[in-house]
Nucleic acid binder design. Structure first.
Length: 467
DNA sequence: TGAAATGTTGGGGCG
DNA sequence: ACGCCCCAACATTTC
């Protein structure tokens, strides 16, 4: 047998800037594989939208590998054992994941195969800085974003430069590989039509989106990123999650341009992603456990009807419904609107942030354990460097501010499209004749609001005082 | 990466 | 001319 290495792809579905792949390609031949780990607990297994993304991500990676990606479903250690034996493999490479389950699983795998005499190496394929390299002087983790980013990340030094795509073609495909289709990642019911129109899942598309963003969005990013209808955001988050592009590629693509405050703002958003991973690494329970323990005693409401109305975009508050429908239709939601629907769920509806975390996990194509968990903790006020609980967004004021001419709301809540701007964001205050001439009948064509914004705000503040 | 309540200031109307 | 009130327009505080 010739010198064969295994390249185990996970959340790094790309050829460029992939250090594990580069090491694998130093061998005579490479067996590139993906394993759908069906032993993970339900709450960390990919949600529906992520599976959809993964399906096309694997197809595209397979193309890049000349059709030689081998795909398996099972317990990774078992799959790897049988491959190592079958091909007499002497080396195994992957890029790291940072959630507790993957960390434990991977370290067991590493220990096992090192014991078998293999070379086993893991690399950083996802982050600008490894979480354990960004700590305070005494080695404890940062709790606040600004010092984490301004001091911690700077002190950790410049991120490594992106590595080139390996010039290599000696791929081996296992004859027992599944087809990507066999993983059953696509939805049975055809809810993915709009998603298909919206997203092309490939490494090339990620690069082209980055180029477009630098061309058309970046120079307005600082202000424009807050306006959901404006298109000044990069839309790179799902590509970053599955690694169709790396954070380092994005970082250096903008850092190599003439300095500009828009670039600083954009980079600090990458910084928030790093911060989330740092929090997850040092708080393995981030997905479930409040960082601020006093929130364990918060009096959350339990109300299935309200939760369903929120999920379906039928709360009767237009900007909230627009956001939730964008999520459902596209697998994505603009960041500003994510804050609004999050605030609405945990503060106005006072439903537990876990419900939001679960729904986003299932619906977002960019669902990411670190970012999703950290962001829900942030908006709920129970996070490390959280939005204070009493900071409650007013969805009406916010839509007037950031969707002033109603383009975003009209796009996703078309039944209100004919309302004048004055009442578009608060149809419950519109006079009868205005509703009539816009063909809106509250309670029929569009719901009455399921909460009173003023009262629910006050109730949230009162409950907060209790803890 | 808020909003509402409360406080302060200053110009203009008016007796 | 003067004091008084009203009320934007800010500023500060509070949640």
């Amino acid at each position: 047998m010739t010198d064969i290495s295994i390249m185990w792809f996970r959340q790094d579905l790309r050829m460029a800037d992939n250090d594990a792949l580069i090491s694998a390609c130093r061998h005579k031949a490479v067996l590139p594989i993906f394993i759908f780990d069906n032993t993970l607990p339900e709450n960390v297994t990919e949600g529906s939208a992520s599976r959809w993304w993964l399906h096309y991500g694997l197809k595209s990676l397979d193309d890049s590998l000349d059709g030689c990606l081998s795909v398996f479903c099972g317990r990774p250690l078992d799959v790897l054992k049988s491959l190592v034996k079958k091909y007499d493999v002497k080396s195994l490479y992957w890029n790291r994941c940072y959630d507790a389950f993957s960390v434990r699983r991977d370290s067991e795998i590493k220990t096992f195969f090192k014991g078998e005499g293999l070379v086993v190496e893991s690399f950083n394929g996802s982050l600008l800085w490894e979480p354990w390299t960004v700590t305070k002087a005494d080695g404890s983790p940062y709790k606040v974003f600004t010092p984490f980013y301004r001091r911690g990340c700077v002190n950790a030094g410049a991120p490594p430069l992106p590595s080139p795509r390996p010039d290599f073609s000696s791929w081996i495909k296992d004859d027992e590989s599944l087809a990507v289709d066999d993983l059953g990642l696509l939805p049975k019911l055809g809810w993915d039509k709009t998603m298909k129109e919206m997203w092309t899942v490939s490494e090339a598309e990620a690069v082209s989106r980055l180029d477009d963003f630098i061309e058309c969005g970046l120079s307005n990013y600082k202000i424009g990123r807050d306006y959901p209808a404006s298109g000044f955001t990069s839309g790179l988050s799902p590509y970053l999650h599955y690694g169709q592009i790396s954070a380092r590629q994005v970082w250096y693509a903008v850092k190599n341009l003439p300095p500009d405050e828009n670039i600083d703002t954009f980079c600090s958003e990458l910084g928030w992603r790093e911060f989330s991973y740092n929090l997850l690494f040092f708080n393995p329970d981030l997905q479930r456990k409040n960082i601020r323990a006093k929130f364990d005693f918060f009096n959350w409401r339990v109300n299935d009807d309200d939760l369903k109305a929120w999920q379906k975009g039928q709360t009767g508050v237009p900007i909230i419904d627009a956001g939730m429908r964008e999520l459902w239709q596209t697998g994505f939601m603009h960041n500003r609107v994510r804050m609004l629907v999050g605030s609405f769920l945990v503060k106005n509806l006072r439903l537990h942030w876990h419900h939001g975390e679960r729904w986003f996990w299932d619906c977002l194509v960019d669902a990411d354990l670190a970012s999703n968990s950290a962001s829900w903790q942030w908006i709920a006020g129970c996070g490390a460097d959280a939005s204070p609980y009493f900071r409650i967004f007013n969805p009406v004021t916010q839509s007037e501010k950031f969707d002033g001419n109603g383009d975003y709301v009209r796009k996703f809540v078309p039944e209100l499209a004919k309302l004048p701007n004055k009442y578009l964001f608060r149809p419950w205050e519109a006079p009868e004749d205005v509703l009539l001439s816009a063909n809106v009948e509250l309670g029929k064509t569009y719901p009455h609001p399921i909460v009173d914004l003023k009262i629910s705000r006050q109730n949230a503040l009162d409950e907060f005082k209790q803890i």
